[in-house]
Design a protein around this nucleic acid. Structure first.
Length: 712
RNA sequence: GCCAGCGUGGCGGAAUUGGUAGACGCAGUGGACUCAAAAUCCACCGGACCAUAAAUCCAUGCGGGUUCGAGUCCCGCCGCUGGCACCA
């Protein structure tokens, strides 16, 4: 194995600086003596430094993991030395799809696979010599842990933030299962399963939904008070997508219906020349005239068959059909034709828009294509495209002469006074579909009774553990595999009413939403403190928020938004005392292969940390990864660069130790005046650079110091 | 298309607040040690002019600008990376 790994012969040096011997000795010592145990000493200031915990995949650790872990480890060690009580834990995001697929393939319990992987990961992480407090270790798939995940769900439910709703799922008849988006591929514009290439269709199903949208404003405001990379904050802001606009009512001719549209450009109301509904809009059925029915039905079927991908990717072609119906302009009472088109999304705003082709590019393209009238209401050039900038209003009755903002204010005032519409705020953020038709996840603590009511399990009944199954293959029904666990599934109430447990499980995000709290509640004996207990409250108040949180930016709008949401719910229950869970966030960059491409098996450029730990040692690996460049940058691996890191450690070693393993004569008790200046420079620079996570320059300074020490 | 970030030697990168551009490392060149090599130690290492050095000039993606002074600030381009993407 090592032949190609060594670009340089380390063999003979190993007798001098023997990393295998040294690292083994100290790692065993640390583990045995619990050197890095959190003290819980209230006389010291606290520091909570957290890594994004890994999903323990079958692949094991890759070189990206040690990068973030080393960064947090440096900070943890520094803070301990500076007299802080440091909480620095590690755990496992242990539920997930690969374990489920393994279970289906081998008919083994996914927990077996998961436990094996966790053991491998733990061993690998320990071989890196990281200073975790292993008494705090946790796994999201541990019933002691997911007991609290389930309990937090009941808290959400009691606040009205969890409800059952009809939501489309990706159903694959052939495989007899519901598929996740990442298990579907696009084949000639049709959805097919990644496995086998069988057709997949959207099908509605009752699912749990968490109303994260109710916290949209708080999630937005909270961003102001936290020290996160600007890019991540922007991504969250865009994801939440708050727009201030107006909803305006357009009554339908010959029907007792009013179409409500949402617009941010109410000022262009006099330029509206038609109305467009999303194909899925509930009014379509009722308003379509008999002579248009055939084309409307066909269009709606077409849109249903399109994949999400196709609907967005083919956005040059603005397709749509006329319903035969008309709506009244709310002010001029003109008749405007009502169309349906899939450029209008049912899931945003009201699923209906007033089309102002002169001043909206999408409406412009649609009007050109379908020969609909274009009416200009803001001065500007509309010969080639819509004019969307600020300008003076024309052809707009009482808005004439105003600019955009003044016109918006004035028209909304008018609409509100005449009961035709009102100022409205909409968000891009959607409620969170919280059900998965899977086995390997947290069961919902819920019973559905035959009389149609729902019971949420009491805290004393938790955890509701996953039942054992005779096989993990798909259920062949739209329900998840849990529907096969008859004994577990069916319950009877004291009054004889029968019920079934929920057959869905929670998504992988659930367990990771509160794990930073889980470490604090961990008693160290496999149990967790009750969230509401006095002891838990005392600990939470001490340790939260997380002072420094490091991980990849791929969780920018998933995990990091969902945990902030749960945290805010817990805050509203008074269970946590701070509004934000992660005070300072930092994203480490990606490590590319030596050829500057993403590491992957197929490219043959994967570096395995185990091999490096064996050949060069954990300290060389860690030093190199910190020296490669800025922590946040994407940077390529270099084997000769790694050799350089190893060489520096040997150089430091030789400064202390003679070839015969005696202490070097250079190491003396007295201060050396020649080194005084560079020593102070080094202390200052390293201290500052560690605080700002500029480890590459801190290491460069230490190299300068060692070079000077050699010279004197 | 929109949002964010980046562009500096052969390579990874430094220059933290507008003040000696290229710290530190890798690769390379020369020397010492050695029978020889490896390892180690020392020196050199952006380009032009030049035998060499000094001196000078050019140089931080491109074109302008502000300033005594710009890699850093401003305007306009070009290129790359990440994210979002018909959000009305």
């Amino acid at each position: 194995m090592d032949a190609f790994l060594f670009s340089r012969k380390i063999k003979e040096v190993v007798t001098m600086y023997n990393h295998r011997k040294i690292e083994k000795k100290w790692q065993e010592y640390w583990l045995k003596n619990k050197t890095f145990k959190t003290l819980d000493d209230d006389s010291k200031p606290k520091y909570y430094v957290l890594d994004m915990f890994p999903y323990p995949s079958g692949q094991g650790l890759h070189v990206g993991h040690p990068e973030g872990y080393t960064a947090t480890d440096i900070v943890a060690r520094m803070k301990r030395m500076q007299g802080y009580d440091v909480l620095h834990p590690m755990g496992w995001d242990a539920f997930g799809l690969p374990a489920e697929q393994y279970a289906i393939k081998t008919n083994n319990h996914p927990g077996i696979f998961t436990t094996q992987n966790i053991n491998t990961f733990r061993k690998q992480i320990q071989s890196l010599g990281l200073s975790y407090d292993w008494d705090r270790e946790l796994s999201t798939a541990d019933p002691n842990y997911y007991k609290i995940t389930q309990y937090i769900f009941t808290l959400l439910y009691k606040k009205g933030l969890a409800e059952v709703r009809e939501v489309d799922v990706n159903w694959c008849e052939e495989l007899g299962t519901v598929l996740a988006n990442e298990e579907i591929v696009n084949e000639n514009g049709r959805m097919v399963s990644e496995v086998g290439g069988f057709p997949v269709v959207k099908r509605p199903m009752k699912q749990w939904v968490l109303k994260i949208t109710e916290y949209a404003d708080e999630l937005l405001e909270g961003l102001e008070e936290i020290d996160w990379p600007l890019g991540i904050k922007d991504m969250q802001r865009n994801w939440i997508g708050k727009s201030i606009g107006a909803s305006i009512n357009f009554p339908v001719k010959d029907h007792d219906l009013t179409i409500e549209v949402f617009t941010t450009r109410a000022d262009t109301l006099f330029g509206a020349t038609y109305v467009v509904l999303a194909p899925e809009h509930p009014f379509v059925e009722q308003i379509t005239t008999p002579d248009c029915k055939a084309q409307v039905d066909e269009y709606r079927n077409q849109s249903k068959a399109k994949t999400d991908l196709e609907r967005t990717e083919l956005n040059k072609e603005k397709t749509g059909v006329f319903t035969g119906a008309y709506a009244y302009h709310p002010i001029t009472k003109e008749l405007l034709p009502i169309w349906i088109a899939d450029y209008v999304l049912i899931s945003y705003g009201t699923g209906a828009v007033m089309a102002v082709p002169a001043h909206d590019q999408r409406d412009y393209e649609f009007a050109k294509k379908h020969n609909l009238p274009i009416k200009q209401v803001v001065e500007g050039d509309i010969s080639k495209q819509a004019f969307v900038d600020d300008g003076i209003h024309i052809n707009s009755d009482f808005l004439n002469g105003l600019n955009n903002q003044d016109a918006i204010n004035k028209v909304i005032e008018y609409l509100e006074a005449h009961n035709l519409g009102k100022k409205t705020i909409k968000y891009k953020l959607r409620d969170w579909v919280f059900s998965r038709q899977r086995y390997w996840g947290e069961p919902f603590p819920v019973i559905h009774w035959e009389d149609g009511t729902i019971t949420i399990l009491d805290k004393s009944e938790l955890p509701l553990e996953l039942p054992e199954l005779s096989d993990y293959k798909p259920s062949k029904s739209i329900e998840g595999p849990l529907s096969k666990a008859k004994d577990w599934l069916e319950v009877t109430r004291a009054d004889g009413v029968k019920g079934r447990r929920e057959t869905n499980t929670m998504p992988q995000w659930a367990g990771s939403c509160w794990y930073y709290i889980g470490y604090i509640l961990n008693k160290g004996n496999g149990e967790f403190l009750d969230l509401e207990s006095e002891e838990a409250q005392k600990r939470l108040e001490k340790w939260l928020p997380v002072d420094l949180y490091i991980g990849g930016s791929e969780h920018a709008v998933g995990h990091l938004l969902y945990s902030r949401f749960w945290h805010k719910v817990l805050y509203d229950y008074g269970l946590v005392k701070c509004k934000e869970p992660f005070k300072r966030l930092f994203n480490q960059g990606m490590i590319l292969g030596e050829n500057n491409e993403k590491m992957s098996k197929s490219r043959g450029n994967v570096i395995n940390p185990d091999d490096i730990v064996f050949s060069h040692g954990a300290d060389s690996l860690r030093l190199y990864e910190m020296f490669m460049g800025p922590l946040e940058a994407t940077k390529p691996w270099s084997t000769t660069g790694l050799d350089g890191a190893r060489r520096f450690l040997e150089r430091v070693w030789r400064l202390y130790v003679n070839e015969d393993h005696t202490l070097s004569a250079k190491i003396v008790d007295q201060d050396n005046k020649d080194l005084e200046k560079v020593y102070h420079q080094t202390v200052k620079k390293v201290t500052e650079d560690y605080e700002t996570l500029n480890f590459n320059t801190a290491i460069a300074q230490m190299m300068i110091f060692i070079n000077e020490a050699y010279k004197s």
